[in-house]
Each structure stands twice: as structure tokens, then as C-alpha cells.
Amino acid sequence: MGSGMVSAPRDPGIDLRRLCVTVRQDIVTMIHNAGSGHPGGSLSAVEILVELFFRQLRLDPSKPGWPERDVFILSKGHACPVLYSVMARRGYFPVRELGTLRKMGSRLQGHPDAAKLPGLEVSAGSLGHGLSIACGFALGIRLLEARAPEGQPAGEGRRVFCLLGDGELQEGSVWEAAMTAAHGRVSNLVAVVDRNMVQLDGPTEQVMALEPLESKWAAFGWHVVPVDGHDLDALHGAFEECRSWSLSASGPSVVIARTVKGKGVSFMEGRSAWHGKCPDDESYGRAMSELESGED
């Protein structure tokens, strides 16, 4: 098989809803085991990452540096537990390694360290960096693809995805990157905002209001796709719309995924207190059984 033909299966043949439950259990277990971490913004992004890694990204877990892969940049680095879980479940590394999160010598650092774990594109943790990196990556891909020898089948070009937190949008540098991407019509770039409405100090609209968020992105020249960020079918449709938009070469698109912070664990949902708190043994037990029984 030619390398250009490898891609993520559109129908992975596994139950993605069940997988989302497993990923949530991974997240809670990893953080409980580590004794610290950020459950809220990891739980809100589960469906987004499952859809990306199982149905959108062109990737090969056995070849993390495959030159034709699509690129995923996690800008909200504190949500790395969800990324680690989805990567492990996708086959990048053994699931048992999830138990090493935040431990000395682990490849699963408290915030992503790309030098340690193959498959991570870039380290992240200081907010407001990712969209610039993703845009530059997409510009670089576009430049190199334009140099491909004539006669080579063009196919679908590589794309770059960037997951941002909503609170993160308060960083001014995000909007610098938003301008650059629109100005350069960087249409192989897709941003995703995990719009869970809550940041460390409280509700985003109380700390520093972000609304009207859709019209902000639109005003910056982006194609805006709002979606229920916990509905896998809707997410799939949203990303397929972005795929079509990319082909139109008109500019970047952004999926604004309406989510619930701490989704799936009742006492964490919508609570800023669980932005960066580790569950004690009792909370952990409750969270795990809720997640198990919450499955239809």
C-alpha cells in the first residue's frame, strides 16, 4: 500500500460511545493515581479527541513521525490526560503506561513534553501558544506541498488541528494567530474550542466574558461551525464540514464545541473547583461508578 493511502478509518468498527466512557474512566483513574491533575477540562474534551483520533486524523500510531500524517496540536496542555488516554487507546503506547502520569521518569508529563512521548507534536502548557504553532505548521505544509513534483497525485493535503480551551481565548496571542491564519487563508487549519464555560477562577462569563464568541471568530475571518461537543454524530458532521471548507481553500475554520466541564461526573460538572483538583478515594469511587452506570 502506498503511504499516501493510509488513513484513519472513517468507520473504526468499534463502539465510540463506549470508548468515551473508557476514556473518562482513564482520566479519573490517572489523576487519582497521580494525586494531581486537571479533570474538568479533560472530561469536557473526550468526544472531541475520540472523533479526531478515530475518525478524522490521517495517522499511523506505529509511525508517529510519518511525514504525511495530519497534525494535532493540544494548546490547552493541562488537558493532557484526555490526550494520553486517547493516544493509548488508539495504539500509540500501552494502556498500562497511563498509570505513570506525573510520576518521576514518566513519558506522561504533567503537561505534554514532546521530547519524551512520540506522537506528541509539541510541548504545551503555557496558554496562547498552540494556535500560532498550528498555523505555522499548516503554512509550512502548504509551502512544501506546493513544491511537490508535478504529476504527483495531489489527493487531500495534510491538515492541522488545534484544540484550545475557552478560557485560553483570553490570551491575546490567540487573536494574533487568528488574524495571521485568516490573512493567509490557511485553509488546512482547523481550530477547535472546548467551550465548557468554566475556567480556574470561575465561569468564563464572570471572570472575563468571551461572548459573543461565534461572531468574534467570524469577525476575525474564520468559518465558524458550532456544535454540541458531546454528540459524536454532530461532531463528525462538524468536522466533515471543516473538511469541505478546507478543500474550498477559503481560509481556516473553527469548531466551537459546546461542552460541559467535568462531563460525566455529576459533582464535577460545571464546577470550577474541579478544574485542577484530584479526587480523593471516596470521590474517585463515586466518579467511576457514575461513569459506568451512565453508559446506556
Binding site: 497534525v71 507534536e121 509539541v122 496562547g128 501558544h129 498552540g130 494556535l131 500560532s132 504553532i133 498550528a134 498555523c135 505555522g136 505548521f137 499548516a138 503554512l139 509550512g140 505544509i141 509551502l143 512544501l144 506546493a146 492541522v160 491575546g172 496571542s173 494574533e176 494567530a177 488574524m179 495571521t180 490573512h183 493567509g184
Partner: peptide
């Protein structure tokens, strides 16, 4: 011209864009 990017008055973005270009294999 195809290898040149002026990002306007945004130094933070410029360094981030350069980082992305480097990740793509270029020498910014």
C-alpha cells in the same frame, strides 16, 4: 516571496508561527 511571512505587529505570534514552520521541516 513564497518563503516570506510578515505577521504584522505580533511578536508572540511570529515566534509561534516560526515554531510551527520549524516543526513542518523548514528553517525559519
Amino acid at each position: 516571496p513564497d518563503r516570506y511571512f510578515n505577521v504584522g505587529i505580533s511578536e508572540q505570534d511570529m515566534i509561534g508561527e516560526a515554531a510551527g514552520l520549524a516543526l513542518a521541516g523548514l528553517i525559519p
